[in-house]
Structure formats: C-alpha cells, structure tokens
C-alpha cells in the first residue's frame, strides 16, 4: 500500500493496479486457478441459454426425482426439471447479486468513509459510532430485515446485501483517507485552491482503490453466500427462476428422496465462493505487507 501511495497518483495508477493484479495471478497458482474458475462461471452465466440442455423451468412430470443419467446429467427435481440446466441458470442471480451488491456497498460506503476521514471532527465521530454499531450487528439479520422491508426479488436482494455491508467499506475508506489527507500532494492541491470534493475524489480516492478492490473481491464471495442464504430462506428470486440457494432449499426438502438435489447446487456454490476467496486472498497478500511477508516465509 505504501508503494502506491508514494507514487504520483495520476492516470497511470489504474494501469498500475491492473498490472499488479496480473503479476500476482502469474506468480500465485492458487489465485490463477481461482481467476480462471471465475471466468468460467461468468462464461456459463452469459452462455446459459446456449449451453443448458433444457429450459430452466421446463417440466417433465413423468421423469421427476431422477438420479444422474444420460438424458439428465445431474438428475431432475420434483417437477422433472433438469438440475444441470437449473444450476447453470442459477449462476446468474449468484453473480448478479454478488457484483451488484458489492457495487452498492462501495457506492454508499466509500463516499461516507471519505467524508468522515477527510472532514474529521463531529462528522467522523457520528460515522464511526454508527459503523461500530452496524459492524456488531449480524449482517445476515440486517439483510433479512431489509429484504423483508423491500420485498423479495433479485434487485431487492442485491440492495439488501449491499446495504448490510456498507459499514465495512466506510471503515475501509476512512482509515487511509485520514492518513492521506495530510500528505504533501494533498496539501499542495489545497493550496492551489482545489475544492474538498475534488481532493476527496480526485486525489484521495485513487489511492485507496487497491484495498477497495480486494475487499470487493472478497465481498463477492460473501454476497454470493448471503444471496444463497436469503434464497434458502425463501426471500430471493421468485419461482420458477432458479438460484443456488433455492435449489439447495428444494434439495433439503427432498433430501430423503434424492440427496443429489441438494448436493450439486451446494457444490456449485462452494466452488464459486472458494474461487473468489482464492483470488481475494492473494490480492490481500499482495497489498497487505504483513500478510504478504508471512506468506513468503511460509
């Protein structure tokens, strides 16, 4: 982090970050594997209509509760719907909610954190107090409350997950902002008459993009898990749209009849979360000097 801060925070900064990420991926096989896996999920989500052998809601009542076989690769559910196709389509809400909710968290949390860190004083005290309260509250519970308030549906779920994780990003943005606001180049801009807004978004923000990206990657994994949890509890997408969470729920309801109905979507969820965590962890190691050192030694 200190390396990026020391450099002149101008346009090449973005390129810099991408280059650094690429460097990590090249050296860290785990991260590369995770990254390729993520690309695979994205491809599956985009190509869902082409690669899924059946429509996600297409029913074959006479073939209900089939085990994996040649016509239904991973078997069928209660309605005789092809589980393989449903898992493929289920990647869409997972990714959509994962990315969207993180953007919501960043969109709300980072400006608040910047404001608090830059302004300091009572604004900072109020924000910090609120962040402490929000962070001590279980986010799944908060998300559940918000989604009950907004009603089910994919966008609402993304909003709920996003809002319930805002506090983390406030804290993330606030700390570095406080450190950077007193550095020479910020002082210089100030002396040249730059407005607060310009300093906050033009000078400070680019310097904290790194940590935000890492946190974002790691949060996507958490958001996918939370989407699955909310869907499992019945607050996600409406039937017949599949999501991994409601597929697992259907599976649990019929676990004594056909265990694979819960197993396969569970595996899809596990591997996807794992992939995002692999990439996120490596990025954190790179940006966090202490963790990075530890890793090299190990």
């Amino acid at each position: 982090m200190s390396k990026t801060q020391a450099k002149n925070p101008q346009p090449e900064h973005r390129l810099d970050l991408l280059r650094e990420i690429w460097k990590v991926l090249k050296h860290d096989k785990t991260a590369l594997f995770g990254f390729i896996f993520i690309l695979g999920i994205v491809a599956v989500a985009i190509l869902a209509p082409i690669i899924s052998p059946y429509g996600y809601s297409e029913q074959h009542i006479l073939d209900s509760f089939q085990g994996p076989n040649t016509s239904f690769f991973l078997g069928t559910d209660e309605f005789g719907r092809d589980l393989f196709s449903r898992i493929i389509w289920g990647s869409r809400p997972a990714l959509l909610v994962g990315v969207l909710s993180v953007l919501v968290s960043i969109g709300i949390g980072v400006p608040i954190g910047l404001l608090a860190g830059y302004k300091m004083g009572w604004v900072d005290r109020v924000v910090s107090w609120w962040v402490d309260v929000a962070l001590s509250f279980p986010s799944i519970l908060l998300g559940l409350m918000i989604v009950i308030l907004l009603g089910p549906g994919i966008v609402n779920v993304a909003l709920a997950i996003g809002i319930s994780h805002v506090a983390q990003y406030v804290r993330l943005a606030r700390g570095p902002t406080m450190a950077i606001r007193n550095l020479d180049f910020v002082m210089a801009s100030k002396a040249l008459g730059a407005t607060d807004l310009r300093i906050a978004f033009g000078h400070i923000l680019p310097n904290i993009v790194g940590p935000i990206v890492i946190m974002g990657t790691l949060s996507i994994a958490g958001a996918i898990r939370m989407e699955a949890s909310l869907s499992f509890l019945g607050f996600g997408v409406t039937p017949p749209t599949p999501s991994w969470g409601n597929l697992i729920r259907d599976g649990v309801d019929n676990i004594l009849q056909s265990p694979w109905m819960a197993l396969f979507p569970g595996l899809a969820l596990t591997f996807s979360v794992l992939a995002f965590n692999m990439v996120g962890d490596s990025l954190r190691d790179m940006f966090d000097p202490r963790a990075g050192l530890g890793k090299k030694k190990g």
């Binding site: 809601s57 029913q59 309605f79 409406t238 039937p239 017949p240």
Partner: peptide, 23 residues
Amino acid sequence: YLPPMQVIQEMWKKIGVDLELKV
C-alpha cells in the same frame, strides 16, 4: 398450494401467459 401452482404456471407459459408467483 405452491407446487401444483408451479405446474400450472409452466402450462400457462405455453400459451404466452407469464404468471408471476409472489410467495
């Protein structure tokens, strides 16, 4: 109620009736 209604939802889809089920 829900499972039979999901079967009907799929049948109605075949004639272009898009039924949203708010559970």
